[in-house]
């Protein structure tokens, strides 16, 4: 925490006999650190899930869920750090396209695998037949 305050007060203007704390900078730094740490946690958890889970559909779950949320959190952390409105708009555009395309691609991969006849590991349960549920 002292590192964060030191980082914020480095750019602050020092008044006479007292250090003026740049509260906007403190809020931006804390927002960046929290969002980036949460996003990296999600991204690394998704990667480890893709490496270690036993089945294709569970790997799909790990990658599809955590990559979307982790990407949005990391882009939010970068939005906290950006200085100009142009940068904020570009990062929001990247975040919007990732939010639209990433679940769509995940769904397309899952649908193609299910149509190709890749059965999930189910234990005692039974997968619905391809002939029964149509598309």
């Amino acid at each position: 925490m002292s590192l964060i305050f030191a980082a914020a007060t480095e750019t602050a203007h020092a008044a006479e006999h007292a250090i003026h704390v740049d509260w906007i900078g403190v809020i931006r730094t804390i927002g960046t650190v929290v969002s980036m740490a949460a996003g990296l946690l999600f991204v690394l958890a998704g990667t480890i899930g893709v490496l270690r889970l036993p089945d294709f559909y569970t790997r799909l779950h790990a990658a599809g869920m955590t990559d979307t949320l982790g990407a949005e959190l990391i882009l939010l952390a970068l939005i906290f750090q950006s200085d100009s409105l142009q940068m904020v708009l570009k990062l929001l555009l990247v975040a919007f396209f990732l939010l639209v395309t990433s679940p769509t691609a995940t769904h397309a991969v899952a649908h193609a695998a299910y149509r190709a006849g890749l059965k999930p590991l189910l234990g005692d349960y039974r997968a619905p037949d391809l002939e029964e549920d149509g598309t």
Partner: peptide, 8 residues
């Protein structure tokens, strides 16, 4: 499909 998921 595992490889495609990894590429994505």
């Amino acid at each position: 499909y595992d490889r495609l998921l990894a590429v994505n």
